[in-house]
Amino acid sequence: MVVFDKPHALNDMPFHYCPGCTHGIIHRLVAEVLDELGIEGRTIGIAPVGCSVMAYDYFNCDMIEAAHGRAPAIATGVKRSDPENHVVFTYQGDGDLASIGMAETVHAAARNENITVIFVNNAIYGMTGGQMAPTSLPGQVTQTSPYGRDVNHCGYPIRVCEMLAQLEGPEYLERVTVNSVKNIRAAKKAIKKAFQNQLDGKGFSLVEVVSSCPTNWGMTPQAALKWIDDNMLPYYPLGVYKDRSAAKEETK
């Protein structure tokens, strides 16, 4: 009996990601959810600019490559063109969603656009060589903050889930991580719920996945996973930040 195998929605192309990069795990979780919900054939994914710019090479569903940060805007168009049949997800990093694409993200959430957003937060610009991102932690050393992020000069990191939770629009916001088997299971549950919300027509669902970047953080993959626990999670606490349907159930 096969206990575990590569999901059908991922093809055989080897990932171009660095050794130990958790993008591969998140790709697989999305693909597993597409398989389990049986929606691979009608799913359209929107790839971002960033490390996952070539995500379209790895998924068996249809994919569109968006301009930097504009994935939620393209997802809006694709979803509205055939809301009954299209299942649309965007897959974005923190330099894409939280920086140049902030306007698109906030307005898609405010409109409660019926799409699923997978937001990979690794606190750094990975693809361009490790510059400071809007989500880089205070004091974090990056290529453009060699003495550590000075909050008096560069401001504070943005907590995307907390920020979007202030809006009336979004249906579901959750932050998860993938640094252990237990957390991977929880992350998959959250991603599945985000897709199920879209199938049920509930609206904007965003899952923020706290991820690692061993290469640009300058550590081994193992140390990077531990760094998530020690440094990322205190600033970016895991949990559900908004779940409108569940809140409605409670008030009934």
Binding site: V2, F15, I25, R28, V181
Partner: peptide, 11 residues
């Protein structure tokens, strides 16, 4: 579950 490159098949 942990493999980022999805290379392990378990039976």
């Amino acid at each position: 579950m942990m493999c980022p490159d999805c290379i392990i098949k378990v039976e």
